[in-house]
Design a protein around this nucleic acid. Structure first.
Lengths: 118, 118
DNA sequence: ATCGCTGCAAAACATTTGCAGTTTG
DNA sequence: CAAACTGCAAATGTTTTGCAGCGAT
């Protein structure tokens, strides 16, 4: 929890090692998952693990199901433009932005009613 | 290009295989990278490949450098609330949203001036 | 005695690379 | 012929798993 930024498991491992030299990478992974499951912290992207191609070359955003990870495109025009209230940290040159709307898709809502345990 | 959705390399491989049974997964990866590099299409998340922990449990968004992949948090309060112009596809239950602002960080801008080839 | 946590090693995935042969222009 | 593309197999990188031991309840 003391680590700044958005560390990878490997980085957490290197850091924790300084305090607990005998710790293993597997334990770091297991512990990270315990915290993720409990919601103590999150992960930067729900889609790490495998590359996913996005053929839609119009400006658009994503509806992402937090349960089944499915993705639905929504057109940029369906969203009011995103506006900043403050200027960004010095020297960052914006190219574009993408909004990720997280929630449950219809299928997963239906499934959670018939199989609440899943 | 004919595939709907946001396929993984494995899914592209299975599909292309029907037309070209002898194709290998390595060729699919190489071809996907050719298209990604040329900008023909994009990828859903720039952060696939490795898990990244996000300890910031306040609502916030990310500034992401497309070159070095570094991440800077920006507070939700620094953004006007995101608004929809249309209702979402049937039955999607929104939990939260996250804005990803993509661009170049100050370091990478500086570096591209001294080492334009990198 | 049981439960949960650990390290280790191996397994399971995901992706990249070197290389030699083939195709294309 | 040169350049680009291919399959294969091996190498890399990331994450998970089985298992036996250990400590706390």
């Amino acid at each position: 929890m003391a680590m700044p930024g958005h560390p990878s498991p490997e980085e957490v491992f290197e850091r924790v090692r300084k305090k607990i030299p005998a710790i293993s990478l597997a334990t770091v992974y297991k512990t990270i998952h315990t915290f993720l499951d409990s919601g103590t912290f999150g992960e930067v992207s729900i889609h790490h693990g495998s590359l996913r191609v996005d053929r839609n070359n119009r400006p658009h955003h994503h509806l992402v199901c937090t349960r089944c990870k499915s993705i639905i495109d929504i057109d940029d025009a369906d969203l009011e433009p995103v506006r900043l209230r403050k200027s960004l940290p010095g020297g960052f040159r914006v190219q574009r932005y993408a909004v990720e709307i997280l929630g449950l898709c219809a299928k997963c809502i239906a499934r959670s009613q018939t199989h609440p345990e899943m």
